[in-house]
């Protein structure tokens, strides 16, 4: 169990290496759709360590999983904004915040909250992110202006389609879980 925490930390360290970070940040879509999810995943891996260390804290403050998932959502929405990405590239403090917030305030609460959430909340969360991704996709594709100082318009459009295709996959998942009655097969 602790092994996964070590792997998570290793993943975070690799992502922090300047060549890795520079490479992923050099393309807009890999910055938002690869580096950021990987940071969250490193947090998911490390969560066990914090859960074991601060058992009381998690059971007291994240009893039904909703506060944790709210924190996760806020962090993710924050990092979906064009301006925050720009700032991460120009201000070191914001870049540092990115490497702290996504694993520890995003990934860790996600791991802690997900099993505690009812299926209603789980689906509500996926629906929320589907709508958010569609909206962001629309914004990035059809924005008449360049949204980030650091990325060209073509990269912005690419990111927009990345959002739309991810939203499409989530819609397929929602349809699948709506129409599938797992109890019939178990």
């Amino acid at each position: 169990m602790m092994k996964s925490s070590v792997y998570g930390l290793l993943l975070l360290l690799v992502l922090m290496l300047p060549p890795a970070a520079d490479f992923l940040e050099s393309i807009m879509i890999t910055h938002m759709h690869m580096q950021m999810p990987l940071l969250v995943i490193s947090g998911i891996f490390m969560a066990k360590f914090f859960q074991n260390r601060f058992t009381g804290f998690f059971s007291k403050w994240n009893e039904n999983g909703v506060p944790g998932i709210l924190l996760f959502s806020i962090i993710l929405v924050y990092w979906s904004l064009p301006r925050t990405m720009d700032e991460a590239l120009t201000l070191t403090s914001v870049e540092v915040f990115k490497f702290i917030s996504l694993p520890f305030l995003g990934g860790v609460p996600l791991r802690d909250s997900w099993p505690k959430l009812s299926s209603f909340w789980k689906h509500a969360l996926i629906i929320f992110f589907t709508i958010l991704f569609l909206a962001l996709g629309w914004l990035y594709i059809w924005s008449p202006v360049q949204l980030c100082n650091n990325y060209l318009v073509i990269e912005q459009i690419t990111l927009g389609w990345g959002f739309i295709s991810t939203a499409f996959a989530m819609v397929i998942y929602l349809i699948y879980s709506y129409f599938m009655d797992f109890s019939k097969y178990e």
Binding site: I29, T158, G162, T166, F168, A169, M170, I172, Y173, Y176
Partner: peptide, 17 residues
């Protein structure tokens, strides 16, 4: 169904750019 969704996400990652 879940594996197919994972596949679609991966295809999206690969082909969008």
């Amino acid at each position: 169904g879940l594996w197919i969704v994972c596949m679609i996400v991966l295809v999206g990652m690969a082909y969008v750019i």
